[in-house]
Amino acid sequence: MRRPAPEPVQVVKQRRDAALGALVKGLPFIQFLGVEFDRRGDELTAILPYSEKLIGNPLLPALHGGATAGFLEVTAIIGLSWSYIWDDIESGKIDPTKVTPERLPRMPKTIDFTVDYLRTGLPRDAYARARVNRSGRRYASVHVEAWQDNRARLFAQATGHFLMPARDE
């Protein structure tokens, strides 16, 4: 029995990056914050490049708690949407040549979001990763961890619950 030849690497990357790009472009607030996403296979790392407008306490200076919260919530929503569309990207149900923000499934809606501020957010880049702890047909629970210089020293973490968009079968 012969296996089909594996897809060329650039085809795989192009498909995944196009889908991620469409997902991120569909959220104006991501551009407002300046958040970028780094993809390694299906793993996403959100990056919040430092910008002066993100400061909440000019004396320290420190990142605004609201900027941190927004960064974590964006990371959770994109992480959840990404895990939700991954199978459709890989199976070809979502056509990479035709992905636009309008053609992607609706975004999950935040039910609640709790942010735990562990350390002062320093005036430099921040990173975050989301972990989908449970994703059912209607509800999902997502945990997010954010750090700056040192992956093991989190400066904030959050847990959110989300209402999943209706799936048309």
């Binding site: 708690g65 900027a67 979001f113």
Partner: peptide, 24 residues
């Protein structure tokens, strides 16, 4: 503000902007 929209199909402001308002 349209720059703070979280879902362009509805034009609803992203929760992250509301978080900043609540926190401040």
């Amino acid at each position: 503000d349209e720059r703070m929209v979280g879902d362009p199909s509805t034009g609803v402001i992203h929760g992250g902007a509301v978080s900043a308002l609540m926190d401040t």
